[in-house]
């Protein structure tokens, strides 16, 4: 059972909610697919069981001693990634066109390290995460790799909770591919609604069971209503409305899951929401 927590835009409270849900679910494997801002794991101390360099994609490499500076590579590169017979690694897309035109065979494609990946054991279970190299993108391959690593540990567990990537690009697609259900966390702001619509388009495309929760629903009643209408119209499941709660900020600063704060009103709402989610995903 894989549940993916998504939000179109950042800052809607996706990680707070993903963390709370994994606390409530008790037996879980967590996968942090929000690899460009991997905050999910920060709540937990743990011991790294596995650390692995992740290579994905290639970059061109010019062998200086063979290069006769003919400039053919520069001419053929459509990404302006070659300047003065040097490769700009950030612009190079690893297509290899330059290797084809080099009369000296001075250019090769080299595998590029894009991330460190970790399997960490905490007292709450296993977390799989990655730390990206700068300028590298989360690829479908990396997300698949993380999910697969986590799979090894998920045999006896009931739920795997995936903290999905933001946006609607390839990493998100890889986060939800083959998963069982999606929970979209949104907030009642104009941009929150726009982003929700984008994410839902994606979920519809992939025909995945989709639930929505509105975080900080009470900061703008009008937009909350708009979101509710949208959810109705799309025939999605609105599983929770979480109130604005100062304790959330406190929990983030103290790096403790919100479920730790007994009197938190957000915690109460999330607990109720989890009951509803369970009904949907386990039946």
């Amino acid at each position: 059972m894989e549940l993916v927590v998504l939000s179109g835009k950042g800052g809607t409270g996706k990680t707070t909610i993903a963390t709370a849900l994994s606390e409530l679910a008790k037996e879980v494997v967590r996968v942090d697919c929000d690899v460009e801002a991997s905050n999910f794991y920060m709540y937990y101390d743990g011991k790294d069981l596995e650390k692995e360099d992740f290579y994905g994609g290639k970059k061109a490499d010019i062998k200086k001693d063979k290069c006769i500076q003919c400039g053919k590579c520069e001419e053929v590169c459509r990404f302006n990634a070659i300047d003065h017979f040097q490769i700009n690694a950030f612009a190079c897309e690893g297509c290899g066109a330059c290797t084809l035109v080099c009369p000296q065979n001075a250019i090769i494609l080299k595998d590029e390290k894009v991330a460190n990946t970790f399997i960490t054991k905490t007292d709450k279970g296993i977390i799989a995460k990655a730390e990206m190299e700068i300028g590298s993108d989360a690829s479908g391959l990396l997300i698949s790799f993380l999910r697969k690593k986590a799979e090894k540990f998920s045999k006896n567990e009931l739920v795997t909770i995936i903290d999905g990537s933001p946006g609607i690009g390839c990493p998100v697609i890889a986060s939800i591919t083959g998963s069982n259900a999606v929970l979209v966390v949104t907030e009642p702001t104009k941009s929150g609604l726009e982003d929700l619509k984008r994410v839902i388009t994606l979920c519809e495309h992939f025909q995945i069971f989709t639930m929505v929760c509105i975080n900080k629903y009470d900061i703008n009643g009008e937009v909350t209503k708009e979101i509710e209408d949208f959810v109705d119209q799309k025939e999605l499941k609105l599983v929770g409305k979480i109130p604005y709660d100062d304790v959330v900020m406190k929990s983030i600063n103290e790096l403790k899951p919100i479920t730790f704060y007994k009197d938190s009103i957000a915690k109460k709402a999330i607990t109720e929401m989890w009951k509803t989610i369970q009904k949907f995903i386990f039946t």
Binding site: E36, F90, M132, S136, D137, A138, G167
Partner: peptide
């Protein structure tokens, strides 16, 4: 764009 992806690096150029 958010993060430190290829898109950000391409913007910073």
């Amino acid at each position: 764009p958010p993060g430190t992806s290829c898109n950000v690096v391409n913007t910073l150029r």
